[in-house]
Design a protein around this nucleic acid. Structure first.
Length: 423
RNA sequence: AGAGAGGUGGCCGAGCGGUCGAAGGCGCACGCCUGGAAAGCGUGUAUGCUCCAAAAGGGUAUCGAGGGUUCGAAUCCCUUCCUCUCUGCCA
């Protein structure tokens, strides 16, 4: 959520910045400014009424104590009008505040200056490409065929017990998943991220805190009877650890990592590109989250990108890094780098990590602040990234490491898998 | 799930209808004291919104949350969430 004061003081700047997302914000921005004005005016009026009625109440108290009941009764009559007026005003204040919040919810984050203009994924800016794309033997298979051939992932079995998009990993496939999770967590903790295990279901307040609600309500599974949401990413529970928290500046930055399964309804996305592991309703991911001083957040973002790079380099997977254009960025992000791994057998790039700086967009909602050197509270910046999402990494490994007689396990994973080939 | 007890500031804990944002203690910060430290003494120490060009300062709200009673609620009533104890169920 953007800050009202910022919008009020930077009307043109906000509109221009959002134009980079191909988002015409002018009418919403003006609505915010008008509602804010109304809200403040209402509050001033309310506070004045309350102030006077509080004074009278105090007088009554003193008169009662002094035993001057008649005088007290006289003043009591006067309070009636204040009571009605304050009720009216406080209702009005609630209404206008709610309206303001609802409009604010509709505004996406303002992109950082270096975000390229553009509407579609084709306009994302490739900033780096590394790793050799292997030349596979004749008859190399896409991962869903390999999964079947070596009996390591069973999509049909998942359909039977849950539905499409809920694969069952078996044998070495399951073990490889576990290995990847452990390996990622180890890399992250070595880099200074503290490991967390968090709930996989969250309440409504948490959904609002990180911005999944109300924008993406339909993308989350909802457990109606208890009014909880299955997490679409560990970002939600982990970032919400810091909801309503004031951090001491000396404790910044905060670095967290967590493995969780992720649940996404992915309503409406079907087709040839979502075969196999490419798009799932449940998948595993190891996430990194940072809380930073504003002046450090972009350096931190670069650091996170570097960190993810080292993992892909160790896995020897060919990857490229994209700086997302305004039209392709998520609602809450100010700047996002996507990592894609090249799937040789599918002959296309698969997104495996998305690293973003949210600046104060999340912390405004979360009320996540830190006490600066002057003792003032100010909003912290939040960042997060996948480090890494499992299914497409797995797809990349299966496809790029396939030989005619089996799938070779990347060297760094062997201590975790305990085997070096799937055959 | 049933019965009971309870949720107060960074923490502990008092207050149970009036001037209470809230005693007292601990912690923390600063100052005095000291060669230095401890102890001691003193001062300060919540957050949101808002008014003021800003600082100083003022107003207002907040004692789990939401409603109600009342001129006035941390205190009374209702709803709800959470915690603890016992019983039940259970990995």
């Amino acid at each position: 959520m953007l800050q009202t004061v910022f919008i009020r003081e930077n009307r043109e700047k906000v509109i221009q910045a959002l134009a980079k997302r191909n988002f015409d914000a002018s009418s919403l921005v003006d609505e915010v400014i008008a509602l804010d004005e109304k809200r403040r005016a209402t509050q001033v009026e309310l506070d004045t009424v309350l102030s006077e009625s509080n004074k009278l109440s105090k007088d009554i108290g003193e008169l009662m104590k002094a035993g001057e009941k008649a005088k007290a009764a006289l003043i009591k009559e006067k309070t009636v009008q204040f009571k009605e007026k304050s009720k009216e005003l406080s209702d009005a204040l609630n209404t206008v505040s709610e309206e303001l919040t609802n409009v604010l919810y509709k505004l996406p984050n303002t992109p950082a200056d270096i975000v390229p203009a553009g509407k579609t994924p084709e306009e994302n800016l490739e900033v780096e490409r590394e790793g050799d794309i292997p030349v596979l033997f004749e008859g190399a298979l896409p991962h869903w065929e390999l999964a079947k051939k070596y009996d390591i992932i069973d999509f049909e079995l998942g359909v039977k017990i849950a539905g499409a998009g809920f694969p069952v990993y078996k044998g070495k496939g399951a073990r490889l998943q576990r290995a990847l999770i452990a390996y990622f967590l180890d890399k992250n903790t070595e880099a200074g991220y503290k490991e967390y295990q968090v709930p996989h279901l969250v309440n409504e307040a948490s959904g609002y805190g990180t911005g999944q609600l109300p924008d993406k309500e339909g993308q989350m599974y909802h457990v109606g009877i208890d009014d909880l949401y299955l997490i679409p990413t560990a970002e939600v529970p982990v970032t919400n650890l810091f909801r309503d928290v004031i951090i001491e500046e000396k404790d910044l930055p905060v670095l967290c990592t967590a493995y969780t399964p992720c649940f996404r309804r992915e309503a409406g996305s079907y087709g040839a590109h979502v075969r196999g592991l490419n798009r799932l309703h449940q998948f595993d991911k190891v996430e990194i989250v940072r809380v930073e001083r504003p002046e450090n957040s972009y350096a931190a973002l670069d650091g996170m990108v570097e960190h993810v790079k080292t993992i892909l380099q160790e896995l020897k997977l060919p990857y490229r890094i994209l700086r997302l254009c305004g039209g392709d960025m998520g609602f809450a992000a100010a700047l996002t780098y996507d990592f894609e791994v090249f799937s040789t057998a599918q002959d296309r790039w698969l997104e495996i990590s998305s690293v973003s700086n949210f600046e104060t967009f999340q912390s405004t909602r979360l009320k996540l602040r830190f006490r600066d050197k002057e003792g003032k509270n100010q909003l912290a910046h939040t960042l997060n990234g996948s480090s890494l999402a499992l299914p497409r990494v797995l797809a990349g490994i299966l496809e790029n490491y396939q030989m005619e007689d089996g799938i070779v396990i990347p060297e760094v994973l062997r201590p975790y898998t305990g085997f070096d080939i799937i055959n």
